[in-house]
Simulated assay, not measured.
Amino acid sequence: MRDRLIHSRFFDLAAPDAAGTSVISWAGGLQAVKLSGELPPGWCGNLAVALSHRKISIVRGFARRVVDHRWIAELHVLPSEPRAGLSEAEYLSLAWSPPAPEPPAEIALDSYYVDSSPESGQYLFLEVHGYDRVGFLASLLGRLAALALRPEQISLETWDGRALDAFHLKDAAGGPPKPETARALSQALDALRQDQPGRRHPAPV
Rank of each mutant, 00 (worst) to 15 (best):
E119R: 14
P104T: 07
H69D: 14
L126R: 00
S8G: 00
L86Q: 02
P118D: 03
Y112W: 14
A14E: 11
A163W: 06
L164T: 05
P82G: 03
L51R: 00
N46A: 05
E90G: 08
E38M: 12
D3I: 12
A15T: 08
F62Y: 15
K178Q: 15
K55I: 10
S8D: 00
D190M: 08
S139F: 03
P176I: 08
W96K: 13
E90I: 06
R65S: 02
K178G: 12
S80M: 12
S155H: 13
D171W: 04
A145P: 07
L30R: 03
S8P: 05
Q31M: 13
A173Y: 08
G174Y: 07
P204V: 07
D17F: 12
S139R: 02
S97W: 07
V205M: 11
S120L: 05
D165N: 14
V205L: 15
R70I: 01
A188G: 01
A203R: 13
S139N: 07
K34H: 14
E152W: 12
N46I: 01
P176H: 09
W26I: 08
D68W: 10
V114Q: 01
W43Y: 07
R199V: 13
L140V: 11
G198I: 08
A146I: 10
I58M: 13
A105N: 12
L149V: 04
L169F: 11
S111Q: 15
P202K: 06
S8C: 05
S22W: 02
D171L: 06
A89T: 14
D132T: 05
A32F: 00
D132N: 00
E81W: 11
S111E: 11
F10S: 07
V114P: 04
A19E: 01
L192T: 02
W96P: 00
R183D: 15
Q31Y: 04
A15S: 11
V66C: 03
P151Y: 10
I24S: 11
F11Y: 12
G61F: 04
L75P: 01
Q196I: 10
L5I: 06
R70S: 02
L137F: 03
G175F: 10
G28M: 07
S93I: 08
L5M: 03
K55D: 14
G85T: 08
P176L: 08
